[in-house]
Design a protein around this nucleic acid. Structure first.
Lengths: 333, 333
DNA sequence: CTGAAAGCGCTAACAT
DNA sequence: ATGTTAGCGCTTTCAG
């Protein structure tokens, strides 16, 4: 490996000078600068980032924690974070935590020991105590963690309300909800939104709410059980798209026609929802934007000593596709 | 940040001794070991990995290059690599290259400067020259890169043949192929397999082969155009599952019933293929296994100075689902 | 404008 | 069995 010394020797200057031209710090005579640059080129020299990191205590790396990389929502999010961070010269590290606090703990330690500059976290299990022990900048994404840390989220509750209102507006009379896992804050928020709209309806039953655990297969099962017990259900608001697709699958298996007999709306707006037939109506999050915004905020926090933590909330947007239709409207396919 | 010096001071020993107990190298008196360990605990000391890396020239990090993180195949693969590497105490870095050689180049440099210990690469664009400049261990995954580097792949050609033979065996008379992008070696292999089985059939036309570029939407378009021009087609072998789902979508839009009028088989075996209705018959790769195996090989190569490069090929397996059915068989749904 | 030298935190000879 | 010391490759005072 060629080092700064080799360059210095070849250019006939000191290592300090080489460092100066590399970093553009301090004055250096144009002619020596030329010599140095040509030496660098000649040797195809690249500075050792590890040595740099050791000196600076920074690594030019940032990490993203996601609970489930197999849920397409997270690759889309990761993609955004990666784009932004790369663009600013950072190396991006993706960590899959399975929403297990032990894995989060392990990653947190490992990354800290590597002088990672900042972390974006999607987590429901991580605790404030754990975070407070970490001195590096952290941003919460998709789910608020608490404490006074910055976060980027969407209006889950209002989005859920909108979804349910939409179902009502197209004539659904019995609306159920397939929710996510208990411990996820989004689950609670979206459920609140659902309840806001249905709890005073005379048809509402608490057994209209079942959990699909944010998994495809679990949602299929849950949906089938639900519709078997409650065949009167004609609309379902599903907690995320992955489960929404599971519900579509369950309907097919039950011989229930979507959207003719049952309207389904979900949440997230991932590409998966466009692949099915019928395609999935959904409350779409601006996935790329929130990922990108979180990355930008993290970079601000890293580079600005007097950064103030803030919470930003984005709005979800209804995307009507084929899994919902006004009651009684004709089938034109 | 607490350093080894702090620990040494508190324990009343030298930093060398602390280092020795941490690493379990050399002799150290049980009683001093105790003192050191308690000092470590008391200070909640964690060694600085950057300093370690600088000294050792190794970072305990390994990276995986994938061409498209939005294709669910790659998260599944990444998951496997991550599991294995974490299990061995390595930090895992996922790099999305978009199959662009510039991004690969950039990542390669960045990672090398960070003393990354090894890289697993899924790439069609990377060149032998680029690789040969890198001195760190590299393994090719999913696609052979050439040179004499280790690789983990599947029997694409034979798998493709099997897929087409299966289509024939259930009575398909006109079998088309939606292939991936030109530059991907898998595309070529799978196409060869297809051609092996159909090129001598009197019905075969070269216009039965169209590209879906490994994208969902492109495949949908390609499929619709194909079936419009060639309505006689009754079987399609699709280059991967993502496109397979696109083909299913296209069929729905065209009003072609799958599998009654058209049988569709794809390649990969990702979870996405189970989410659709009909679910997708496919030649399933052992995704997790090949990812895990590549990771293991990389670790071998990192730790074994006399490692011999090798190529391992796994077998794909037919998974019959709902997108294929024997001609003339009754519909029981 | 440039060089000498200290030091980031750790490990591995080399002494003792 | 333990301490001393010389780096790993880089950056940044501090001199000149």
């Amino acid at each position: 490996m060629t080092t700064i010394k080799d360059v210095a020797k070849l250019a006939g200057v000191s290592t300090a000078t080489v460092s100066r031209v590399m970093n553009g710090t301090g004055y250096v005579n144009p002619s020596t600068k030329k010599k140095v640059n040509s030496a660098i080129k000649q040797l195809d020299y690249r500075p050792n980032d590890v040595a740099r990191s050791l000196f600076k205590g920074k690594s030019k790396m940032i990490a993203l924690f996601v609970p489930d990389i197999m849920n397409p929502f997270f690759p889309e999010l990761a993609r955004a974070v990666e784009d932004v961070t790369n663009h600013h010269g950072y190396t991006f590290i993706l960590c899959n935590t399975d929403d297990e606090i032990e894995k989060e703990q392990t990653y947190l330690n490992a990354l800290q020991q590597k002088s990672v500059d900042g972390i974006i976290i999607v987590s429901s299990t991580i605790t404030k105590e754990l975070i407070s022990k970490i001195k590096i900048p952290i941003i919460a994404l998709d789910r608020i963690i608490g404490a006074n840390m910055s976060s980027v989220t969407v209006n889950n509750r209002e989005g859920a309300r909108e979804a349910v209102r939409y179902l009502k507006s197209i004539g659904c009379q019995r609306i159920a909800h397939i929710c996510g896992p208990d411990h996820v804050i989004n689950t609670a928020e979206r459920m609140k939104g659902y309840l806001d709209e249905v709890k005073d309806e005379d048809w509402f039953l608490s057994s209209y709410i079942v959990s699909g655990e944010y998994y495809f297969q679990t949602a299929t099962q849950a949906m089938k059980k639900l519709l078997t017990v409650h065949p009167e259900i004609d609309g379902i608001f599903v907690g995320n798209d992955l489960m929404g697709v599971g519900v579509l699958k369950g309907a097919k298996e039950l011989g229930i026609r979507v959207p003719d007999e049952l309207s389904v709306i979900a949440f997230d707006g991932i590409m998966l929802g466009e692949t099915t037939t019928p395609s999935l109506t959904t409350m779409a999050q601006p996935i790329y934007e929130i990922g990108a915004r979180a990355a930008e905020m993290l970079l601000e926090q890293i580079n600005d000593s007097k950064y103030q933590s803030k919470r930003e909330e984005f709005t979800v947007q209804l995307i009507e596709r084929q899994s919902t239709r006004k009651r009684g409207e004709s089938i034109d396919r």
